[in-house]
Each structure stands twice: as structure tokens, then as C-alpha cells.
Simulated assay, not measured.
Amino acid sequence: MSTSVTDRVTDHLRAALPGDPQRASVTFLGVEAIDVLRFTDAGRADVVFASVGCSRHPMADPTDLGADPVRGPRAEIVVRMHAGDPLVDLHRSVALLAATPSVEGVVLLADALVDLGEPLWSGSACTAVVLSVDEIADCPLDEPMSPVTFLRAIPITANEAAWVRLRGVDELRRAWEEAGIDVADVRRVSATPGRA
């Protein structure tokens, strides 16, 4: 029997990230369970959350009645933060992001904005994320399936999300760079992009 997509993704993440991950399984009504792996790199004091389950099926526009059940883009969500704070419930937010294609028919792509409308973890000012391609290499799958792309979800505040809608994600990234903001810092301040 061939290895399942989720097993292939899990093995790929274990090879790409250090340590033995903790695993949490999150279920949403009408959607297959999403697992979230939590990797901790003691040497760098960083923590990485990665979803497993988003890529079970290719993402497709829900209005496309002829969507291919095998071919099409597949992705998983990665969140990278500096450790130190508990990040309570972040695993649930990662699972919610990973379930978005199944629940809302959203195709997750680099530079996309996804607004959850609630704190990503307990006490967080961040309620949304912007996506970029993560440093983890694509996970190859058997033909004709497309490889799995890993998308880094960068937590952003409601003000930053509003700025992305108005001016685009590149403008927000420039603001982070100009202000020297570390987006993996749990306690970072919100960027205040300059006005044009």
C-alpha cells in the first residue's frame, strides 16, 4: 500500500526540522482532522508549528464544478516564533488556517492575507496572517499529484491587516524592515507603515 499524503508530509517535516515534535489533533465540524506538530529548537530557542492535513486534497475554487480531485496545488501551514511565551491555543489557529481550503474553499498562496478575526494565541494582538513561502523545501508526492508547498503564516495585527488590504503586503514588509521589526517576536509592536 502506498504511503498516505499525511504520512509523507510528517516524515518530510521530521527530516527538515530538529527535535521530536509534540502532536495535537484538531477537528472541525465536517472536516477531516488537522494535526499540528510543534518542534522546539533548544539551540536557537525557536518554536515551529506545522500543520499536517491541509494537503490531503488539492485546493480548488469551490465554484469550479470540474475541479480535479488529484491534481492541483497542495499546501501546509508553518508558524515560526521565538520561544519564551506559552503561545496557548496557537496550535488551534494553525489548524484553523490549514482547514480554510476545506471550510471556505480558499486557495492558500504566497502573499495571501487570511483574517481569523480572533487572537492567534491567548493574549495576542495578532488576529490575521500573511503567507509567504517557507524555507522548508516542497514535499514531493507520487505523480500525478503536485508537491506540497509549505507556507509560512506570519502573525499580524488588525491594523497591519487593514494596511495590507489598502496597500498590499509588500508595503507592510517594507515597514517591518524600516522599523527593524522581528516578526517572530511574540511581543513585537505593530508596524506603522508610512503614509504615501
Rank of each mutant, 00 (worst) to 15 (best):
M1V: 09
M1I: 09
V5T: 11
R8I: 00
L17H: 11
G19V: 08
Q22L: 07
R23F: 05
T27D: 13
T27W: 11
F28V: 05
F28T: 09
V31G: 09
V31P: 11
I34M: 14
V36A: 03
L37S: 03
L37F: 09
R38K: 15
T40P: 08
F49Y: 15
S51I: 02
C54W: 08
C54K: 08
P58W: 01
M59F: 04
P62L: 01
T63I: 06
L65D: 15
G66Q: 13
A67C: 01
D68Q: 04
V70Y: 05
R74L: 02
A75M: 03
V78M: 07
V79I: 03
H82S: 09
A83Q: 05
G84P: 03
D85L: 05
V88N: 14
H91D: 13
R92K: 12
R92V: 14
S93F: 01
S93N: 01
V94P: 00
A95R: 04
L96V: 00
L97E: 06
A98I: 01
A98T: 04
V103P: 10
V103Y: 08
E104L: 07
G105S: 06
V107M: 02
L108V: 01
D111V: 01
D111P: 02
L116P: 12
P119R: 10
P119V: 03
W121Y: 09
G123W: 10
G123Q: 07
G123C: 05
S124Q: 08
A125C: 10
C126M: 11
C126V: 05
C126W: 13
T127R: 11
A128Q: 09
V130I: 09
V130S: 08
L131Y: 07
D134R: 07
D134L: 03
D138V: 00
P140Q: 05
P140G: 01
D142H: 10
P144R: 05
M145S: 02
V148A: 01
F150M: 02
F150K: 05
I154H: 06
P155W: 12
P155M: 10
A161I: 01
V164L: 02
R165E: 13
L166N: 10
L166R: 15
D170F: 13
E171D: 14
R174F: 03
R174W: 10
R174G: 04
E178N: 10
A179N: 04
A179Y: 04
G180K: 05
G180Y: 03
I181W: 06
A184M: 06
V186L: 07
V189L: 12
V189F: 10
S190Y: 08
P193I: 01
P193R: 11
R195G: 12
